[in-house]
Design a protein around this nucleic acid. Structure first.
Lengths: 163, 163
DNA sequence: ACTCTCACTGGTCATACTGACCAGTCTACG
DNA sequence: CGTAGACTGGTCAGTATGACCAGTGAGAGT
């Protein structure tokens, strides 16, 4: 189970190669993976099962591109909440806005950070308005993402974890 | 092709249900999808092909959970760059740090926002140091994500786009 | 009214992947 | 030294896949 020397279960170099392979070509299937990695099919299957059961690989769901859906504008909004309003309550409100793709509570002056998208810069205003419509927001700071210099990735991290 | 009335190609309600289905249970395959959606298999296949070719569904790659990999700490770092240093150059430097999962150039006083992860809060410092080691960073603001109130999602947006 | 195009249906077909097994080998470890 | 765990290389039946096809219905354009 690739416990290096400590008790932690970690990631194998084979695991990393497997994930990398599936990342690059998700459609190839277990058999082809085993061929390319030079191991038996059962091994690949076992590794995948283990990665899935440990939660390292959550699933193989479709990765939707909001831009292709017609929402090319991305922005990050930092919310400062009135003390009285709980994060959970705020999160529930945000969850009802489809354009809110993600929300975190964070340290610092801002209490929450969320990622929102919109069809246009003009509509972005509308989305922000809906976010702010929730009473309890004392202040909000919005920055618009101009370019995705590094698109979301986990591969380097996986390789790093594999050692 | 689901052009509502304007020239734009959009998303169908069937498309949305299909994506939702695959999001919930990615392993079921085309045939099972067709059964659950009550349409012919060829239709599902055609829809999927179209969604893929239009880029709405980028791929079905493995979704890796950094926390399960041993990196439970997430933080957002806002970088203010010296004018002389180009974003591209900075992005290249950041790309070499595995813990940097994502980076955007943004409007506002900060010039870049990036998402980083670390094994512990202590190691987070190390990661930030590596980010700041890149000359050209005038100032950096870090906020640590305490909780993921809304995990990254696109389904509501897909449904919204489907109308 | 006619025809064209397009999407969908419901069916077939051969291919080949899947998940389940199994015995045997090798290594690390107590 | 013996055991547990991981990997190999093989088989097996079941079944999904991708590629087809003819026929139908709706909508657009002539």
């Amino acid at each position: 189970m690739t416990s290096e020397s400590d008790g932690r279960v970690g990631i194998d170099e084979l695991d990393a190669r497997l994930i990398g392979l599936l990342e690059a070509e998700p459609r190839i299937g277990v058999l082809e993976c085993s061929r390319r990695l030079g191991v038996a099919r059962g091994t690949v299957q076992a590794r995948l099962d283990k990665l899935a059961s440990r939660g390292v690989v959550r699933d193989f769901g479709p990765r939707v591109d909001p831009a292709a859906l017609g929402y090319p504008v991305t922005a990050f909004v930092t919310l400062e909440l009135r003390q009285a309003v709980g994060h959970v309550h705020m999160a529930q409100r945000l969850a009802r806005i489809p354009e809110v793709l993600e929300a975190h509570t964070v340290t610092g002056v801002g209490d929450m950070v969320c990622r929102i998208v919109a069809r246009t810069n003009a509509e972005l205003q509308g989305v922000i308005d809906r976010v702010l419509a929730s009473e309890g927001v004392v202040r909000a700071t919005t920055v618009i993402a101009l370019a995705e210099q590094i698109p979301y990735r986990t591969l380097p991290l996986v390789r790093e974890a594999a050692g």
